[in-house]
Design a protein around this nucleic acid. Sequence first.
DNA 1: TCAATTCCCTACTAAAACTATAGGGATTAT
DNA 2: ATAATCCCTATAGTTTTAGTAGGGAATTGA
Lengths: 135, 135
Amino acid sequence: MLSKKTKYGIKAITFIARQEDKSPVQIATISKSENISHKFLESILLTLRKSGFLGSKKGKGGGYYLLKEPRDILMTDIIRVLEGPIAMVPCVSLNYYEKCDDCPDEDACSVHKLMIQVRDNTLQVLKNNTLADLT
Amino acid sequence: MLSKKTKYGIKAITFIARQEDKSPVQIATISKSENISHKFLESILLTLRKSGFLGSKKGKGGGYYLLKEPRDILMTDIIRVLEGPIAMVPCVSLNYYEKCDDCPDEDACSVHKLMIQVRDNTLQVLKNNTLADLT
DNA sequence: TCAATTCCCTACTAAAACTATAGGGATTAT
DNA sequence: ATAATCCCTATAGTTTTAGTAGGGAATTGA
């Protein structure tokens, strides 16, 4: 299951991408429109800014804005930052690989074999979707 | 991320499917071979029995055995029983559908749109894999 | 200048989910 | 009988999730 953090993060960055002009969007605006707790959303947008997806402007009239064109932002990248690994087990994760404690031989592991297929298919979907595709 | 319950469950039922004869396999045997806590595994196998994947025999020489041929057991079905929904958000789940609290219009939701694609691809993989494919 | 607005940052907390563990009961083979 | 084995319920420790609290820093506009 996707965490609320990721879900809200995707909704929020999509909201920003939908703006016609490029002026900053305030947390409060997104929070109200998408029914997301203001403070929780604040921490999510902070993550997205620190990861290089969003820029921000302080003070009156400030807010968040996209640093790249929506068509250049892959959903894989957003999800990795918010959710962590896309793979369902650490031993098939490309970006967060970890060996399983219990498993002596990955090649013989039935779960490994299956989850590699799931990962590859999921990645294919998420790489084919940019932020522009969601707006 | 896949829960340990699901991971261990898949490993265990695969272990049973790999047996050449059809005599019952004991919890302790699987537990040792796959490095899974005996008691935890016990509760997992109980779930698999109650869901109709495994039969059991009590007393000395007892254990668990498959009720169907491995080629007739879809991985989707095993995972649904152990892990719950395959979808990453309840609002795109086929078997465990739930409306999102925050989302007034599913068709306009970017997360919804994306996760339907992920779900369909994942399902396709999991339906194309039977237990026989993992042994 | 100064007040209002807005993002920045850290710490904390309540609830839920996950990962087991404990302990005894029921059944069966020998 | 006795040992082996599954059956079942309850409980507990840990981790993760989903927020909440509170103040700080920068910017704008009057």
